[in-house]
Design a protein around this nucleic acid. Structure first.
Lengths: 203, 203, 203, 203
DNA sequence: GATGAATGAGCATTCATTCAT
DNA sequence: CATGAATGAATGCTCATTCAT
C-alpha cells in the first residue's frame, strides 16, 4: 500500500510546498488557490502540508516572506557597501527592475498584494528578521547620504516612493499587461527610470 | 396628483448595491466579500442583486469601472485644458494624491487590485468609454508636450510610471499602513512628489 | 434540472430535519451523526439544513429541547392539578416510565446525555420557556405538599433524586441493555418503583 | 551497581496514558478527545500510545474498566462481609456517594456514558473478571437478604434502581451542575439518600 | 421587479492510524 | 520499544446561483 518513498528532508519538503503554492497562485489567482490543488502539484498529502504549515493563512504568509526575502537579499548588499548617492540610486533601481522582470512569478505574487497585512504568526523568525535588517540597511544609507548633502532631505516615505514607485508601477504594467515582452523592454527602461529617480532625488 | 413612489428607482438601487459592495470589500477584504453579506448591508434581497447585476464578477467589474470613472473624471479636464508641461505634471500629481487620500475607501479598492483583469462583459458601455477617453486625453497631452520639447521624449509607459508610480506608492503605503494620519501628511507630500515628478520628466 | 417539489412549510421542514437527526443519532450514535447523513435521510440539501439551523450544535441543542419538551409536556399537568402527595408521586413515576418506554428513541437520546450542557443559543425561546415553566410547576407542588406535611421536608435535589433517579436508572438499563423486552416489563415495574418512591418520600 | 533506569516501566507508562486520557476527556469532552492531544499531555509519542493500546477504542474501553474497577473495588467488600440488610443498604449508598464526590474526574467519566457498550476486546482480563466478581457479590448478598425476608422480594433490576438510581442522579446533578459545592453538600445528602433507599427496600 | 428558501459542488481542516527510522 | 512525519478519507460548513412565488 505504501508508495516507494525517498524521505525528503523537512526543509526541502517545505520548499516544495511553497513552490507549488506559488505556481498555483500565479496560474489560477488567489481565489483559485486551493489546498488540494497545491498538494496535488507538490505530490504530497493534505495532512503533510498541514503538518508543516499550520493553516492556509500561515502558508501564504510564509510564502510572502520567503519571496520577499529572496527579493531583498540582493538589494541589501548594494547599499550595505555604502556607495555614493548616484551609484546607490541607480544600482538600486536597476537591481529591482532586473529582479522583478527576471523572476516574473515571484514578482507577480509580490506586486499583486502590496502591503498586504499578513499576520506573521507562524512565519519563521529568520525571515521576519531578514526583512527588518533590510529596512534598517536602506534607512541607514539614506540617512548618511542626506546627512552629507548628497541627497535631498525628504521624509523616508517620500524618498522610497520616488525611488521604488516608478519601478513597481512599470513592472506591474509590464508583467500584468504584456509579460511576454517585458524582458526585452526592461534593459532600456532601466536607464530611463534610474535617471528619473536620480533627477528627482538629487539635491 | 402623482402617487408617492416608495419604490426606489433602478439607478439608485444599483448605486446602493455598489456602495454596499465597496463597504464590505473594504471591511473584510476580497476573500470575505460574499453576495449575501452585500445584500444584507444594502437591505435588499439576493434575487434583486442578481436582477441588477448578472453575477458577482459583473458586480465587481462594474464597481471597479464606476470608481475608476469617479477617479479619472477629475483628472481628465486638467490635461484637456492643455496646460504647459510643468503645470500639467504638478497639477496631475496634486489631483491624484488629493483624490486618493480624500476618498480612502474607493482608493483602497482601486489600489488593492492594480491592473486586475476585469472582464468588461456586463459593464455599462459609458463607463468603459469614459475610461478610454481619459487615456486618450492623457496620451494626447503628453504627445504634444514632448513634441514641443517641454518634456523628455520617453516611452509612454515610462512617463506614466515616473508620473503616477510615486503617487500610488505613497498613497498605498499611507492608506494601508497608517490611514488615520494620511490626510494630515498629504499636503506636504504633494509638493515633494510634484517636484520630484517634474524633475524626472523635464527635459 | 429542478426536481418536482412540493414546498413544505418552514415548520414542517424543521420537524423533518429534527426527526432525521434523532433517527441517525439513535442508529449510529453521537460520534456517527454526520450532517450529510441527516440530510440524506431528511431528503434535503445540506444548505437547507444550515438555513434552518445555523450549525450542528444548534441542531442538536434544538433537538434536545424539543424532545425534552415533548417529554415534560405530559408531566407538568399532573402536578399542575395539585393532587395529594401519594397520587402526585405515583402518577409522576408512572408517567415518566411509560413515556420513556413508550418513546424509546427520544428516551434513548435524552438519557444518553444527562445534564449535557447545551448552549441554548439559537434554540427557539418557547422551548426554553416551556422547560422553565415545568421546573417551576414541579417545585411549586413539592413546596406545597411539604408545607402541609404530606411529604418529608428534604432539599429539592434530594427529593428529585429519590423520585426520578430510580425511574431513569431502570429505563436506562432496560433501553440500553434489553430494549426488546422493555415494554413488557414496564407495567409491573411501575408499581414497584412508584411504591418505592412513595415509601422513601412519605413523612 | 545498577544503572539508573530512565526508561519508565511499561505499567507506569500505561497508567500515565490512562491518566492523560481521563484528563483530556474531562476537560474537553468525548468529542474533543483526540489521540494527539492525549499524547501531548502524557508527553509521549503517538507511536508509543499505539504500542501500549492497540486503538482508540481499546484505550477508552480500558480506561472505562480501570475506573469502574477503582470504583467497585471498595463497594464489593462491604457486601462480601455479609452485613444485615439495613447496614448493607446504608453503607452501600454512603460508599457510592462518597466515592463519586471524592473522585470527581473518574465519576464524571463513568456517569457520562452509563451503560456504554464497550467492546471488551483488548481490555485486560483481570479488569473484566473483577467486574463480574463484583456483580456476583452484590447479587449473592441481595439474594440472601431477600431469602431471609430482610428485604422486599423484588426483581434485581428494580432493587438496583432503587438503591443506586438516586445516588447516581444526585451525583450527576451535583458534579455536572455545581461541582464546586458538591463535596460540602455530600455528607448531609448521604443520610437522606440512605434513609430513602432503606425505606423503599425494607419489607 | 422583488423575495429568500433551496441547492450542492467544493472548500479548509481534522484526526485515527501507519511505518520507516 | 519510542519516535513523529506522513497519510487521506471523511467532516462541518460555505456561498454563488437559481427559481417558484
Amino acid at each position: 500500500m505504501a508508495t516507494v518513498r525517498t524521505r525528503a528532508s523537512s526543509a526541502s519538503r517545505r520548499r516544495a510546498i511553497l513552490d507549488a503554492t506559488l505556481d498555483v497562485f500565479i496560474d489560477v489567482g488567489e481565489s483559485g488557490t486551493f489546498i488540494q490543488e497545491v498538494c496535488a502539484r507538490a505530490a504530497i498529502s493534505v495532512g503533510s502540508l498541514y503538518h508543516h504549515f499550520g493553516s492556509k493563512d500561515q502558508l501564504i504568509a510564509t510564502l510572502h516572506y520567503t519571496l520577499l526575502d529572496d527579493y531583498q537579499s540582493g538589494a541589501g548588499p548594494i547599499l550595505a557597501a555604502d556607495p555614493p548617492a548616484e551609484d546607490g540610486i541607480r544600482d538600486t533601481v536597476a537591481y529591482h527592475l532586473r529582479w522583478l522582470v527576471g523572476h516574473p512569478r515571484p514578482a507577480t505574487f509580490l506586486l499583486q498584494q502590496p502591503f498586504a497585512g499578513y499576520r506573521s504568526t507562524g512565519v519563521p523568525a529568520d525571515l521576519l528578521e531578514a526583512n527588518e535588517d533590510f529596512l534598517h540597511t536602506v534607512h541607514g544609507w539614506l540617512d548618511r547620504r542626506m546627512e552629507e548633502g548628497q541627497l535631498q532631505r525628504l521624509p523616508f516615505d517620500v524618498v522610497v516612493a520616488l525611488l521604488i514607485g516608478p519601478v513597481h508601477h512599470w513592472a506591474r504594467s509590464a508583467l500584468f499587461l504584456d509579460p511576454a515582452r517585458a524582458p526585452a523592454k526592461a534593459e532600456a527602461t532601466i536607464e530611463q527610470l534610474a535617471a528619473g529617480a536620480w533627477q528627482s532625488l538629487r539635491p
